[in-house]
Design a protein around this nucleic acid. Structure first.
Length: 444
RNA sequence: GGCCCCAUCAUCUAGUUGGUUAGGAUACGGCCCUCUCAAGGCCGGUGGACGGGUUCGAAUCCCGUUGGGGCUACCA
């Protein structure tokens, strides 16, 4: 086994969703592989047949792809696979497990009892040399033998995990700390099979905001929720990096390339981290604003399409401009969709209270004052528009805000929205005038 | 219960050969900016669980206590 070129793996179970803890485990494995130009392997731990469905499998593919984590070996969505160490589904590796199991029995390192196969656990001290936790001593002198093949012939996690790791020549096992206590068993299995174990790195767990274990039942525990909420993968994986790892230079926003360049195992924290939704929101907002518009646009398109706000006929250049002004104000895709509604639809929802406050007789009068200027302005650009509204307010002795607020309400039905002048420009003269006349009544 | 891991602001963290006014970020509060909302700028409070050691000196090393987490399955 060549330790210079790491081979790492992510081995999820097709449960129907990807846990955020699993996502970070995948991310750290992937970062490690990419940093050292190693191999990142995807292996599906589907020994539990009951929950092994095609949909559950595609969730893994989809969510990993969304995160931008590509694998060098493993199954592919089209049903094929790549890599020379397959099959990459545990359900297709029974012969292999059987062979190893029999080998252990032959060497009398395992035995049959009650129709199950038990591994003869060595009664000795086992040292786990962990890349993150250091040397940990386990006194296994009282450890009980454990089942590796069940009565029904299926194999237990410890056995399949070890066999797969050695068959696939995994060099570094990077996994959640919840496996730390299992590691002596795994090491004993490796030794019984005459192999030296891989290097281990147990990463701290991700906890709920309350500090309890994040289980599948908990809200916010699945990656899909964040996709649905309209988080950007760039932001989400950036945040995931921050849970247990940091650049160590007082900077928290960094791209995946920089993470790859600087990632390594020894710098990882030893203590568990709570998931902080507020901070994720902040990071997402940062990316929302700073991503090149062309990079943000496909995500926005996806959100808007899913919300049913756009179709094939929507004007792309208008859409992109609208996203460009709205993204300054929002933190998630869901918010963006909400803010885009008045820009995309010509049937506005006016709140009664808002109308009374802003579009009463006085409000309409103010809008009428502005209308001729908006009609006559030579170029419908934010700068020009700002100039004419400012001049108008000077001339009429009003506050600029008097015009701005009423225009916003008249044009969007809302008191909160994008900055006015850019919005006027994006909507364009025609839409602006149409909407305003709809509010104040036709020209006399 | 047994075994293992962990312990710096509310939260994520910097610190790693003991000597810092314990730094940053999010959140929170105040002020400024302002066209609503954001963003931005400035300021602010809050911190090494507790108790013992070692030392001239401990967030940093040792021990104990407490607290949190994990494992202890014919789940993975």
């Amino acid at each position: 086994m060549n330790k210079m070129i790491p081979r790492v793996r992510f081995a999820p179970s097709p449960t129907g969703f990807l846990h955020v803890g699993g996502a970070r485990t995948a991310l750290f494995n992937w970062l490690y592989a990419r940093h050292f130009k190693g191999t990142f392997i995807l292996r599906i731990e589907d020994t539990d047949q009951s929950r092994n469905t095609p949909q559950a499998l595609s969730v893994i593919f989809d969510n990993l792809s969304w995160l931008g984590l590509d694998w060098d070996e493993g199954p592919l969505p089209d049903g094929s696979s790549k890599g020379q160490f397959g099959p990459y589904f545990q359900s297709q590796r029974k012969e292999i497990y059987n062979e190893y199991c029999n080998r252990l029995i032959a060497k009398e390192l395992a035995y049959i009892k009650d129709e199950a196969v038990y591994f003869r656990m060595p009664r000795k001290r086992i040292i786990v040399s962990d890349l993150i936790c250091g040397d940990i001593y386990f006194d296994c002198s009282l450890e009980k033998d454990f089942v590796i093949r069940r009565k029904d012939g299926s194999f237990v996690f410890h056995l399949v995990n070890v066999v797969d790791d050695l068959e696939m020549q995994i060099s570094h096992v990077i996994r959640g700390e919840d496996h730390l206590s299992n590691t002596p068993k795994h090491i004993a299995l490796f030794e019984a099979l005459g192999m030296s174990p891989p290097l281990y790195a147990h990463i701290p767990l991700i906890l709920n905001p309350s500090g309890t274990k994040m289980s599948k039942r908990d809200k916010g525990s699945s990656v899909q929720e964040y996709i649905d909420e309209g988080f950007l993968p760039q932001a989400f994986r950036n945040y995931l990096c921050l849970l247990g790892w940091s650049l160590k230079e007082n900077r928290e926003i960094f791209g995946i390339e920089e993470a790859i360049a600087k990632f390594d195992l020894p710098q990882i924290h030893r203590s568990n981290a709570r998931f902080n939704h507020q901070k994720l929101l902040w990071i997402n907002g940062e990316y929302m604003r700073s991503l090149p518009l062309d990079e943000l646009y496909p995500h926005a398109f996806f959100w808007l399409k899913k919300a049913g706000l756009i179709d094939q006929n929507t004007d792309c250049s208008f859409l992109k401009q609208a996203v460009g002004i709205v993204r300054e104000k929002v933190k998630t895709g869901k918010e963006l969709v909400e803010w885009m509604k008045p820009l995309l639809s010509d049937t506005l929802q006016y709140d009664e209270a808002v109308v009374q406050q802003y579009l009463d007789d006085k409000g309409k009068e103010i809008l009428r004052e502005a209308l001729p200027y908006l009609e006559e302005v030579s170029s419908f650009q934010a700068k020009e528009l700002e100039a004419i509204i400012k001049n108008l307010s000077l001339k009429m002795g009003r506050k600029t805000a008097d015009y701005i607020h009423r225009l916003r309400v008249a044009l969007t039905g809302r008191t909160v929205g994008p900055s006015l002048y850019p919005m006027l420009e994006v909507l364009g003269k025609q839409k602006v005038l149409n909407r305003l006349y709809k509010v104040v009544g036709p020209k006399e």
